[in-house]
Design a protein around this nucleic acid. Structure first.
Length: 461
RNA sequence: GCCCCGGUAGUGUAGCGGCCUAUCAUCCAGGCCUGUCGAGCCUGGGACCCGGAUUCAAAUUCCGGCCGGGGCGCCA
């Protein structure tokens, strides 16, 4: 099969006689025995040179892997040989040469160069070695992210992220959801202003959206009925942990005509399972590369009411105070308990007590037990991935709950207006894409899942 | 915002009052080698975050700042 990259080559202004030659005719991974004996152009980063004197082995890395270019001094002449093997590591070159079968080369073949061209010389020393035999701190890696991502095992994370996102998206589309885009520059936050980034909007105060909450509910009054969005959310929380970001990707879903939160959980469950299955099927090699073994989680996910979670923890000897919400330590312990008891990693914590959801004015409370909401969290091995539930669609009740939470309904007029002229019962959830990827790949820091993470200190790159 | 720990060559580290002209690896430079693939061997190069204080003496102790790591709170 020919590479999709085969096509007219670009001519470089002021280029040489070779300007009509393609820079690359094959990725390293595309070369097959059919190519043996033919002359081809390959290109990439020169990741290492093993110069033995009369012969030198050059490791050329491209997106598909690494191939070996074998330079022989007697055939190239001492000057040409010297020029090629003394190039700094990570320089970009194109090499045209004969592909030759050779079992002594790792890939089973090598390229004997007949001509080559330096496309970009790398400076020395590298601020971060790509194939060095020593590690580097995450901070150093992030400062030099473009080099970091040259490492196949780092690139694998972002390829898997792409596949996972596509899988989640496909599942939602299959379930009849419409992808939407809501504004990220907003006049009010979903739950007060403490965690909002403030900015100047043509002289008016505005904020970066911490959540599309108000807008996706707004859309429930439009007849689109089922919407979702994959977009950045901004939180000015001064959080310094391995699972928080100031800018993260929120997968938000909202659906109309739900009876209970159970209807929403079904959507979460299906989307999660579909997304993971898609990633496993499409990304098996990448997962192997990261030494990650993943199975599609069994359905249904266990539903455990909040109060039962507390009982489980106490039964296990944990000290959970009567009037305090579960902390991180308890969430982690719960994840372990669920795993020990049932061998399951995905579970819903359901029916959150109303007293912990006072700020969540849009949460629907059980008619018969107003001290409980229908709200749930999706927990995965102790990490909170998503939360949501049935919303309150009655104007008078939403307004009352808003006031109860210390918010002024007048500040949310655009939102409340949509409740006045026919608002169906609805529900939805917010889902942390990076959190899911983090727990699936077993990454110790959420920053690993973001190309250019934003946290309390980091604004560059 | 709170608590704990840290900042030593490009990278990752050892050293934690005088044995420091600062360890090791990687890296870089030069040399040898026609089958390397964690290449090998020889020679050389490169660093104590910033400011102040204590002391005969500070990489090492103290104070302040900046930066980083972990945890908590909060959350996705």
């Amino acid at each position: 099969m020919r590479s999709f990259l085969n096509g007219p080559s670009f001519s470089v202004p002021g280029g040489s006689m070779e300007e009509d030659k393609p820079l690359r005719e094959r990725y390293s991974s595309e070369i097959t025995p059919e190519d043996f004996g033919t002359k081809l152009a390959v290109a990439g980063w020169l990741q290492d040179v093993r110069n033995l004197g009369g012969i030198a082995f050059l490791q050329l890395r491209d997106r598909g892997g690494v191939l070996q270019v074998t330079a022989i001094k007697k055939e190239m002449g001492p000057e040409g040989f010297r020029e090629l093997v003394e190039l700094p590591r990570e320089s970009v070159i194109t090499v045209t040469g004969t592909v030759q079968e050779n079992n002594q080369a790792k890939a089973g073949f090598e390229v004997l160069p007949s001509s080559w061209e330096l496309l970009s010389r790398a400076e020395v020393p590298l601020p971060l070695g790509v194939v060095d035999k020593v590690g580097a701190d995450l901070d150093t890696r992030l400062d030099n992210r473009f080099l970091d991502i040259r490492k196949p095992e780092v690139a694998a994370i972002f390829r898997l992220r792409s596949i996972l996102t596509e899988g989640l998206r496909r599942s939602l589309v299959d379930q009849g959801f419409v992808e939407v885009a809501t504004p990220k520059i907003v006049s009010a936050g979903a739950e007060g202003g403490a965690t909002l980034f403030k900015l100047d909007y043509f002289g008016k105060p505005a904020y970066l959206a911490q959540s599309p909450q108000l807008y996706k509910q707004h859309l429930m009054a439009t007849g689109l009925d089922r919407v979702f969005e994959v977009a950045p959310a901004f939180r000015a929380e001064p959080s310094d942990t391995s699972r928080h970001l100031a800018e993260f990707t929120s997968l938000d879903v909202e659906q109309a005509y739900v009876r209970t939160s159970e209807d929403v959980m079904v959507t979460v469950e299906r989307m999660t399972v579909d997304g993971i299955r898609y990633m496993i099927e499409g990304g098996q090699e990448l997962l192997d590369q990261l030494i990650v073994r993943l199975d599609v989680p069994p359905q249904p996910f266990r539903r455990i009411p909040y109060d039962e979670c507390i009982d489980m923890l106490r039964g296990d000897g944990a000290d959970v105070p009567e009037d305090a919400e579960m902390g991180t330590e308890h969430e982690k312990a719960l994840g372990q308990l669920v795993h020990q008891r049932w061998g399951e990693d995905f579970y819903f914590i359901t029916d959150f007590p109303t007293r912990y959801k006072v700020g969540t004015f849009y949460a629907h409370r059980h008619e018969d037990r107003p001290e409980l909401t229908g709200y749930f969290d999706l927990g995965v091995r102790g990490l909170e991935i998503a939360s949501g539930g049935k919303r309150e669609h009655r104007l008078d009740v939403v307004t009352a709950q808003m006031e109860e939470g210390g918010l002024r309904p007048a500040d949310f007029e655009f939102y409340l207006k949509a409740f006045r002229y026919g608002m169906p019962p609805h529900g939805g959830f917010g889902y942390g894409l990076e959190r899911l990827l983090q727990v699936l790949l077993g990454l110790s820091n959420i920053r690993e899942t973001v190309l250019y993470p934003r946290d309390r200190q980091r604004l560059v790159p």
